[in-house]
Design a protein around this nucleic acid. Structure first.
Length: 163
DNA sequence: GCCAACGTTGGC
DNA sequence: GCCAACGTTGGC
């Protein structure tokens, strides 16, 4: 397994989809993203092989709880075409889709969740998008330095968990 | 429960 | 094209 080329942080409210759900499912469509900035990332930049920090928002505690891997890059979010789906968007034309999704699979839960509190105390993560005031993006880029710092804090190595 | 920070909508 | 009103996200 090659090292991921790019790194991301995906937010999810555990009440709607938790890392445990992902571990149970083995793979999932990251559908339902209805924000253009996040859409652009999913469509253009998130590629198979990329690494994902799985973050629980609106949770107790708020924390990075696991690692995941992108297994399929951006493709049309078909839930936008389904009138019964939560993410239904009648404006999205199957011929020219508005919304995109990717597929991810779990790599492993962190030995301990890395809480937001903890992350905030780390100098190397001071600039991390997640920790900036008013940062609401649900798919965020993570720098290689931040990725390394997070894995080090968690006491895990990507190579070890992907082996 | 509050509210800051956005994003979206719609009247003009 | 502006911008006020409204809705949502999500930390606190």
């Amino acid at each position: 397994m090659k090292r991921p080329r790019h790194y991301w942080l995906f937010k999810s409210e555990p009440g709607s989809y938790s890392f445990d759900d992902l571990a149970r499912d083995g793979r999932t469509h990251w559908d339902g993203v209805r924000n253009y900035q996040a859409r652009n990332l999913l469509r253009d930049d998130v590629r198979a092989g990329d690494g994902v920090l799985f973050y629980h928002s609106n949770a107790k505690p708020m924390a990075i709880v696991g690692l995941a891997r992108v297994v399929r890059g951006g493709y049309p979010d078909h839930t936008a075409f389904d009138p019964r789906a939560r993410g239904y968007d009648p404006q999205s034309d199957p011929e020219q889709p508005t919304w995109f999704m990717v597929d991810i699979e779990p790599v492993g839960a962190l030995p301990e969740p890395l809480t937001r509190e903890r992350l905030k105390s780390v100098a190397a993560l001071r600039e991390m998008m997640l920790l900036q005031r008013g940062s609401r993006l649900s798919v965020q880029p993570v720098t290689a330095e931040e990725w390394s710092a997070v894995l080090k804090l968690a006491g895990v190595r990507w190579r070890a968990v992907t082996a």
